[in-house]
Amino acid sequence: PRVLPPDPPSRTELLLSVRRALAAVSGLAFIPLLFTASPAAAESADINYVALGDSYSSGLGTRDYDDSGDCKRGPSAFPELWAASHAPGSFDFVACAGATTTDVLNDQVSALTPETNLVSITIGGNDVGFADVITTCRTGSDAACDERGEEAENDVRDVLPALLDQTYGAITEAAPQAQVVVLGYPSLFELGPCGVGSIGETKRVRLNEMADALAGGIEDRVAAAGLTYVDVRGGFEGNRVCADEPWINGTAVPLNESYHPNKAGHSEGYLPALTGAVG
């Protein structure tokens, strides 16, 4: 007998077939997305981050602080910004305005554990009296600025290395598995016109030279310790004090806000520097 062809599928059956095909394709497409997204999430969840250091880490200058009192920690500081964007498994923020290497050793290293695997720090400026250098240059003569700067540079050469070696050694002993990222300090000033009442250009040149000496001294000891150094000076060029859009405060009220990175300095200067070193 003659075999008749099957009846053509109904419209409903056609729609069901299309939906099944789309579901199969969508499911296959979704599988690699799961595998590409999961490692990144897992990587962040595995990070135990501790932020150490002085005012350049704590956020003094941003005018946005939590209940940390004189430490001036706040949500606009670069460690907080990095933690907010990466969601690490743990985050401990103990940087404090005014901290010296002694303060890090006495009050901050205790936040580290063998599980800590990421540490950031800015330290050394207060050990060589850089705030006093700026005050002297702001209020004194060119000669007084140069003399005080020379004293600070001598301390960078003769005193600071041993202090940094001790500090970096304590950090690596307390957190032996950690990537330790040491961020430097920016030079503070743009040259050229800077408005009435600003620090004169001769002093600005001298202060930038001192900042360069400090950066070089820190970088040398970081290299000796086998840690990661991040030079932020290039990132701040064009946006220092006297720029049209400065990322560093000039003379400010209250005075302790002066010559520290503002919110933009943390989000546009320091945060990309840390992210570039860590991811």
Rank of each mutant, 00 (worst) to 15 (best):
Pro5His: 08
Pro9Met: 08
Pro9Ile: 04
Ser10Gln: 02
Thr12Gly: 14
Glu13Lys: 08
Val18Leu: 15
Leu22Trp: 14
Ala23Ser: 12
Ala23Pro: 03
Gly27Ala: 13
Ala29Gln: 06
Phe30Ala: 15
Ala37Pro: 06
Ala37Gly: 05
Ser38Val: 10
Ala40Gly: 14
Ala42His: 05
Ile47Tyr: 00
Val50Pro: 09
Ser57Lys: 03
Leu60Gly: 00
Leu60Ala: 09
Gly61Trp: 03
Gly61Asn: 05
Asp64Gln: 09
Asp66Phe: 02
Asp67Phe: 01
Asp70Glu: 15
Lys72Leu: 15
Lys72Met: 14
Gly74Met: 05
Ala77Lys: 07
Phe78Ile: 02
Pro79Asp: 10
Trp82Asp: 11
Trp82Arg: 09
Trp82Gln: 10
Ala87Cys: 11
Ala87Gly: 13
Gly89Lys: 04
Ser90Glu: 14
Phe91Lys: 06
Phe93Pro: 10
Cys96Ile: 05
Asp103Tyr: 01
Val104Lys: 01
Gln108Thr: 07
Ser110Glu: 15
Ala111Asp: 14
Leu112Glu: 13
Pro114Arg: 12
Thr116Met: 06
Asn117Ala: 04
Ile123Gly: 10
Gly124Trp: 07
Gly125Asp: 12
Asp127Val: 02
Asp127His: 02
Thr135Cys: 00
Cys137Gly: 02
Thr139Gln: 03
Asp142Glu: 06
Asp142Leu: 00
Cys145Pro: 03
Asp146Ser: 11
Glu147Ser: 10
Arg148Thr: 09
Gly149Tyr: 01
Glu153Gln: 10
Asn154Phe: 02
Asp155Cys: 00
Ala162Trp: 01
Leu163Ile: 00
Thr167Met: 12
Gly169Thr: 03
Glu173Leu: 03
Ala174Glu: 13
Ala174Gly: 12
Val180Trp: 03
Gly184Thr: 09
Tyr185Leu: 09
Pro186Tyr: 12
Ser187Lys: 14
Gly192Leu: 11
Pro193Ala: 13
Cys194Glu: 08
Gly197Leu: 07
Glu201Val: 11
Thr202Phe: 01
Lys203His: 04
Arg206Trp: 04
Arg206Pro: 00
Arg206Gln: 12
Glu209Asn: 08
Met210Ile: 11
Ala215His: 12
Asp220Leu: 08
Arg221Asp: 11
Ala223Val: 12
Ala223Asn: 14
Ala224Gln: 14
Ala225Cys: 12
Ala225Pro: 11
Gly226Tyr: 00
Thr228Met: 03
Thr228Ser: 11
Tyr229Asn: 04
Asp231Cys: 01
Val232Glu: 13
Arg233Cys: 07
Gly235Met: 09
Arg240Lys: 13
Val241Ala: 12
Asp244Asn: 14
Glu245His: 12
Glu245Pro: 05
Glu245Gln: 14
Trp247Lys: 14
Gly250Phe: 04
Gly250Pro: 11
Gly250His: 06
Ala252Glu: 15
Pro254Gln: 06
Ser258Ile: 04
Tyr259Phe: 15
His260Cys: 03
Pro261Trp: 09
Leu271His: 01
Pro272Thr: 09
Pro272Asn: 11
Ala273Leu: 13
Ala273Asn: 12
Leu274Glu: 03
Gly276Cys: 13
Ala277Tyr: 07
Val278Ile: 10
Val278Gly: 04
